[in-house]
Amino acid sequence: MEVRTIKVFTTVDNINLHTQVVDMSMTYGQQFGPTYLDGADVTKIKPHNSHEGKTFYVLPNDDTLRVEAFEYYHTTDPSFLGRYMSALNHTKKWKYPQVNGLTSIKWADNNCYLATALLTLQQIELKFNPPALQDAYYRARAGEAANFCALILAYCNKTVGELGDVRETMSYLFQHANLDSCKRVLNVVCKTCGQQQTTLKGVEAVMYMGTLSYEQFKKGVQIPCTCGKQATKYLVQQESPFVMMSAPPAQYELKHGTFTCASEYTGNYQCGHYKHITSKETLYCIDGALLTKSSEYKGPITDVFYKENSYTTTIK
């Protein structure tokens, strides 16, 4: 009895394709271990004539594949690729409408935090270190965002349907971005203890939790000093293409032309909904596939993004 075979390709990165001759009487799992086709788990399936010449994702289970996976995804987590594939199996079914010149995501599976993050990423200057993220990001900007969303979920250790947080998501993504040249110098002034300067680099240099107003941050924000008295913390120097200011959701007025974009969060910790506000020729609110415009805006804002380049204080 002759062994019926077909020729397929296996890959971990969709760049390096490895030619395989597979036995049609055995499952993919018996031949390769966990195997995925377009995100779908085909591990328990036997090869079919229609699979001839198709590319299958496999887990990096030998040295060659491990090197290829690390170079593309910059992670050695053995569960990463499987999590990416199972997320992709959902995100490829989502709709990605162009809204006001940006790629958004039609609401499904509690994905409003991903839509808000995706919209924000198209408006701030950011370059990702893992080629996987950078490639998928370019495709997302062009309207094909399924891979990018699935990668975000995998890097953030999230599953489809789980509630997510924009600030946490951005923080994970910033860790995989090139923020080497970003720098922030802060000064804390206390009447009792004097003053202390701190220099922050990388992710810490672009994120701040405690106030939404970048102007206020430049002037000074009140913080408790270690001595128990009130101290003032203010920005001395900022070198970065953008800054992200966050605070627990509270009524906040966004003035046209003073910011790049913002995240609105309605609801409580267990259950809520994100919308995205962007400042173009007027203010726009993007909620999944829905767009509304207004000249002014007041609502429960939790993150505001500002364009920056270089700032030095005039406070002496």
Rank of each mutant, 00 (worst) to 15 (best):
I301A: 05
K219G: 09
H48S: 11
C190L: 00
K316F: 14
V22C: 11
V3E: 09
D303W: 01
M24H: 10
T211I: 10
Y297R: 07
E2L: 10
A250T: 11
S240Y: 03
L65Y: 01
C156F: 02
Y155D: 01
K158S: 05
G202V: 03
Y269H: 11
V221Y: 07
H90V: 13
H18Q: 08
V166L: 11
Y137T: 04
Y137R: 02
R167G: 08
Y155V: 01
R139T: 07
T120F: 01
P224W: 13
Y269L: 15
A115F: 03
L65C: 12
K92T: 13
Y96M: 02
F242I: 07
Y73G: 02
V243S: 05
T302Q: 07
Q222A: 11
M170Q: 01
C182Y: 07
D165W: 08
M209W: 13
Q222P: 11
Q175Y: 05
E2K: 08
Y306T: 05
L37R: 10
D135Q: 14
T198N: 10
T226G: 08
Y214E: 05
L186H: 15
L283T: 11
H51Y: 04
A117Q: 00
C156K: 04
V221A: 09
S79L: 11
D109G: 03
Q123E: 10
V304H: 04
L254T: 09
T313G: 13
L133R: 00
K255C: 07
Q270G: 12
T11Q: 01
D62L: 03
Q195K: 10
G299H: 05
Q238L: 04
N111K: 01
K233W: 07
D63M: 10
V3L: 13
N110E: 03
G164I: 03
D165M: 15
K219I: 09
C182L: 06
F217P: 06
T27M: 15
Y84L: 03
Q237C: 05
Q31E: 00
I277H: 06
Y72Q: 14
C182W: 03
Y172C: 14
K93T: 11
L81D: 02
H276W: 15
Q222E: 14
W107E: 11
I301Y: 03
S246G: 07
P249W: 02
Q195M: 15
E253R: 10
A231S: 09
K298Q: 13
T10I: 15
S25V: 14
V22F: 03
K46R: 13
T120D: 02
A108V: 11
E308T: 13
T27G: 05
Y306V: 04
G164L: 00
Y274T: 07
M85Y: 11
K275Y: 00
Y284I: 14
R83S: 07
H48A: 15
P47T: 02
P131D: 00
Y138H: 14
K293R: 12
H51T: 00
A231F: 02
G39K: 01
P78I: 09
D13R: 00
V203T: 12
A146I: 04
K275S: 05
D23W: 13
Y57Q: 08
A177P: 01
Q20M: 09
C156R: 00
E308N: 10
Q222I: 14
A108K: 04
K229N: 15
H176E: 02
Y234K: 10
Y138P: 10
T312C: 13
Y214I: 10
T116Q: 14
G161S: 07
T43P: 05
K127W: 15
A289N: 04
N129V: 07
T226F: 09
V236N: 05
A146M: 04
L102Y: 11
V185W: 11
Q30C: 08
K275H: 04
C227T: 01
Y234L: 07
T76F: 14
K219N: 13
P60K: 06
S104F: 04
Q196R: 12
R184Y: 06
Y73H: 01
F80Q: 00
V12T: 09
K46L: 01
K218W: 02
R83D: 00
Q270W: 08
K106N: 12
Q175V: 04
T192E: 13
L290V: 04
N147D: 05
G194S: 03
T292W: 12
I124Y: 01
L291E: 11
L186S: 11
R83G: 02
N49F: 14
A250W: 05
T211V: 14
M170P: 05
N111D: 01
Y72T: 09
N147M: 09
Q122G: 06
F148G: 00
S86A: 09
T43A: 09
Q175T: 11
C285L: 15
T313V: 10
N178V: 06
S246P: 04
K255Q: 07
E253F: 04
L283Y: 04
F56E: 06
L235T: 03
H176S: 03
A108W: 02
V58P: 02
L59K: 12
A250K: 15
Y214V: 11
K255S: 07
A136H: 11
V243E: 14
A115D: 05
D23M: 11
Y113Q: 03
S171E: 11
Y252L: 03
A69C: 09
Y208E: 14
V160M: 04
C285T: 08
N147S: 14
L133Y: 02
A87P: 00
Y113I: 03
K255N: 07
K233P: 05
A154F: 03
L186P: 04
A108L: 09
T159G: 09
V243G: 02
T302E: 04
F32Y: 08
L153I: 10
F217Q: 03
K275L: 02
V206E: 03
K275M: 02
A154E: 00
R141D: 00
L119N: 01
Q270V: 06
Y252I: 14
Q175N: 09
Y208Q: 07
K229C: 14
P248G: 12
T232M: 13
C112E: 15
T313L: 14
L179G: 01
C156W: 00
T292K: 13
T11Y: 01
D63F: 06
L88T: 00
T91N: 06
E162N: 07
T292R: 12
D13Y: 00
I223D: 15
T258K: 02
M244V: 07
S279M: 05
A140F: 01
Y72I: 08
F80W: 04
I315T: 13
T312Y: 15
L59Y: 10
S181R: 12
S279A: 12
Y274K: 06
V42F: 10
G228D: 02
M209Y: 10
A247H: 07
S310G: 11
A142G: 09
Y57I: 11
C193K: 04
P248A: 09
T232P: 02
T5S: 14
T64V: 15
Y96Q: 04
V160A: 08
Y28P: 02
P249E: 12
H256D: 04
D38V: 08
Y274P: 07
V203M: 15
C182Q: 04
T120R: 06
I277L: 09
Y269P: 09
Y269G: 15
Y57D: 00
I277T: 06
V243A: 03
A115W: 02
T91M: 02
Y113K: 02
M207V: 02
V58K: 11
N111C: 00
E71R: 13
V236D: 08
F70M: 13
A205P: 04
A115S: 14
H273D: 00
Q237N: 15
V243T: 06
T314I: 11
T27E: 15
T103F: 11
V203P: 11
G33E: 01
L291F: 14
E2H: 05
L212H: 08
G202S: 04
S310F: 14
M244A: 00
T313N: 13
N178G: 07
T55F: 03
A69E: 11
Y306L: 05
K158F: 05
Y138W: 01
P131G: 03
G143M: 00
N49Q: 15
D109H: 04
N14E: 07
H74K: 06
F259Q: 07
L283M: 08
D62G: 09
N49R: 08
T116S: 02
T211D: 06
